Computed example of a mutant assay.
Amino acid sequence: MSDDGTNYASHLASGSGSGERDAATPVLILGQPFDRGSLYPLRETLHAHVVHAGLPYGRSVDLVLTVHELATNVVFHGSGTGQARIWQLDGVLRCEVGDPGSSDYDTAAWPVKHGHGLWLARYLPDRFTIASGPDGTLATADFALPGPGSHRSATPRLRRLDSHAVLELDGALDEQAAPQITAAVGELVSGTPAAGLVIDLSAVTYWDSTGITALIVAQQRVAETTAGMLVLTGLAAEFAERLDALSPVPFTTRETPAKAVHLFPLP
């Protein structure tokens, strides 16, 4: 996790003196104060605005959870009131959760436990920073908007080999692909006492927390079989780090399905 205090949206906004706007100039799509009594309306407003801005449903849920957890910490562990802003710039939705009344507050004291809300808020975004200064505390979370054609939901394809099976995914690892992955894994483990499975993620173009949950469930289902093993392949380094942080158990990974073959003995 990177914790720096750079407010990129405000920095860019201060430098845009002309009326013309390019892709790097931020556009404020939501600015809303909050307190203890307005956390629910904040969630509803956030969801409506970020879906309208083009964030897929699954990632919009991730964004709402992130901002809600940050706002909750302002309410219960900070000054009690704050401001949430969403900026759109250069293919990114940037969320800022500010607590102007907590300039002397130690953000390291926020309660962070594995699997709890604030832990997820730190690892669900594509980039997360937090810092305190004279103007208060500011947490910033970036969520990348999908590129053209990148959000077609993956259709799992299961190939059975002599020693194991390979589940190939080509598209978005999202809330639509998740139940198909779970069904394919369930079919495999129900008919194989010693299930060996490779899930190839090399062609995954986008993801959300529902897709990550499907991988965790697959790991659990395969581990329940006799001598079962699940191997993930084709993970980008950043995604592997994110998955390691969010999963309660470590995954076995290899670069390609070919490099995972030796892990599965022939029957």
Rank of each mutant, 00 (worst) to 15 (best):
A172I: 03
T140C: 14
I199E: 06
E224A: 15
T137H: 01
D126P: 02
L28C: 14
L266V: 10
D244H: 13
A214E: 08
E168V: 07
F251K: 00
W110D: 09
T107R: 01
E96D: 15
D35P: 00
F251H: 05
Y8L: 15
D106G: 06
L232K: 04
H164T: 03
R122T: 13
G98Q: 12
L169A: 04
H52E: 15
T252P: 03
S14P: 01
D208K: 01
L65Q: 15
A260S: 08
M229W: 03
V198T: 08
R36A: 15
L246S: 04
V198C: 02
D208G: 01
R36F: 02
G80Y: 07
F264K: 01
V112T: 12
L232F: 04
L70P: 05
L158S: 02
A23S: 14
S150H: 13
A194W: 01
A184S: 14
S153H: 07
D126N: 13
L230D: 10
T233K: 02
P156A: 08
L55N: 09
Q180Y: 04
C95N: 06
A227K: 07
D4C: 11
G15A: 14
Y57C: 02
L145N: 06
G117Y: 01
G196P: 03
H77S: 08
A227N: 14
A223H: 08
Q32F: 03
L89V: 12
A53V: 09
N7A: 11
A178N: 07
Q220L: 06
H11S: 12
R36Q: 13
V64Y: 07
L161V: 01
V64H: 05
W207P: 00
L46T: 11
L28T: 12
V97K: 05
F251T: 00
G37F: 07
L63M: 15
A236L: 06
E168Q: 07
T25G: 06
A223E: 12
P134R: 09
V64T: 15
P148V: 13
A240E: 15
R152C: 11
H77C: 05
T205Q: 13
L161H: 13
L167V: 07
R36Y: 02
V97M: 09
A131G: 06
D90L: 03
E224H: 12
V189L: 02
T45M: 06
D104Y: 00
S102E: 06
T182P: 00
F128C: 03
A109D: 13
A109R: 11
Y105T: 12
P26F: 03
V112G: 05
D3C: 08
V112W: 01
D170K: 02
S103H: 09
P41S: 04
H11G: 06
G54H: 09
V222E: 07
T72V: 04
S38E: 07
L145I: 00
A108L: 11
Q88H: 14
L263K: 04
W87L: 10
T252E: 14
V67F: 05
V27H: 12
G37M: 04
D200F: 04
G5C: 10
A24Q: 12
E255M: 04
G211L: 01
L266A: 07
S2C: 02
L145S: 02
T72E: 14
T45A: 14
G15M: 14
V64D: 08
P250T: 08
P250A: 02
F34W: 04
G82L: 08
G58V: 04
H52G: 09
S132H: 09
G228P: 00
